[in-house]
Write a protein that binds this DNA or RNA. Structure first.
Lengths: 218, 218
DNA sequence: GTAATTTATGTCAGCCGCTGACAGATGACA
DNA sequence: TGTCATCTGTCAGCGGCTGACATAAATTAC
């Protein structure tokens, strides 16, 4: 049993406790109105300790979607190389949604709570977008790797950028609140992916003739 | 001569002085390392007064691009109704770039300084994106109006979202530093717009059969 | 099982962004 | 010139966040 030591388990526990306490307080009285002191007090921990687990108050609120992005990237890397970029991205996203539907209930609940919070809190919305964009860079790199082109090629940028656009429209036009809403959300995503596919020329996301190369900082 | 009074002129002057002092300090020592007190001191104004001109430190840094978004929206509203959404958006953006090239030099300089700052400061980058997205809503509304569909229709969302994707790729792949770089930047934008057009089916951004309607909050 | 070492936590002091309240200065207007 | 509206400075204070130091707890070595 390669079980982590007591210390590790304890840390894991307080971390989750802090997240859940924070999410509950945020939902009850709003993100801005909740102080870090309150969160720390709810878990019986000193405020200073809170900042040893999370760099910022924003971090504790957005810790959950980060995991989703990790899943997404892993799934993308696992897609067969023959799939065109946009198709592979679509499948990776589907995998995230199914993981959400079939995964741990408490974790799914955290994810949904966070989504609601992000929607209703501009500051968190900005932070969420920022993380999404940092993740974009990794997606671009992965697509470039798959297609054996440079990450500075315009095509991976465009493909990923267009994909995030689709994902964003999905979240803007459908707001899942409970696990039961997830199937409908999945369907909505399919609808938008279909719209995108219908709007695009077949083969658009495959490199051609190397004409669109771009150097960074140009 | 409907000239504004002395009071108004003074306010305008301190406002610009604060922006320029802030931009210079940010460039010299970084955004985070610069305190509001320093900015206020540089303009010989109390820190409290600073916050009467700008709600946050972020605001003083991002005041310039906001104007660009206003121009963009105005230009879009002025485009002829026959133009399909994506074409109209493209022309509106071109208008912004030319306005930047032909407009007031000091203002263009502010814009470019801000761009550089935003690129190198994650916090500002997030804020910049957030403003961009708030603006997206207005663009969507305008497109919906032009096309006589509901703002809840998926199509305006998709069109605008895809357009912002293009704009973002433009800024990511070309970093204009001085007014002389603007022509090259314009060309880069054309290149990406061409790539987008080449990737999309003709007529994709025009509503068809009313099949893609979506209700909000579904 | 105890001692030595590492690591997590609490306490304290303090900076910085930001705000409300009040008082004094300054431009607007009759 | 005097009244009024508005802008500005001062002060006190909250909340996010950090460094430094001491203490407590878990891990490791003996």
């Amino acid at each position: 049993m390669n079980q982590p030591g007591l210390r590790e388990r304890k840390k894991r526990k307080t971390r989750l406790a802090l997240i859940d306490a924070a999410l509950d307080l945020f939902a009850a009285q709003g993100y801005e109105a909740t102080t870090v002191d309150q969160i720390a007090a709810a878990v019986d921990v000193s405020p200073r300790t809170f900042f040893r687990y999370f760099a910022t108050k924003e971090d504790v609120a957005l810790s959950s979607p980060v995991d989703g992005q990790e899943v997404m990237l892993r799934e993308l890397a696992a897609r067969p190389a023959e799939e065109p970029p946009f198709v592979a991205l679509g499948h990776a996203m589907r995998a995230v949604v199914t993981a959400l539907q079939e995964g741990d209930l408490t974790e799914t609940a955290r994810f949904l709570k966070t989504r609601e919070l992000v929607e209703s809190t501009p500051a968190l919305f900005a932070g969420s977008i920022r993380r999404m964009m940092e993740n974009e860079r990794r997606l671009i790199a992965e697509i470039a790797r798959r297609e054996s082109t440079s990450p500075d090629d315009l095509l991976p940028h465009f493909a990923v950028s267009l994909f995030t656009a689709v994902a964003r429209v999905g979240f803007e036009s459908c707001h899942p609140r409970s696990p039961q809403d997830l199937p409908a959300f999945g369907e909505r995503l399919e609808q938008i992916l279909a719209l995108a596919e219908r709007s695009l020329r077949p083969g658009w996301d495959r490199p051609r003739s190397g004409a669109d190369a771009a150097r960074p900082g140009g």
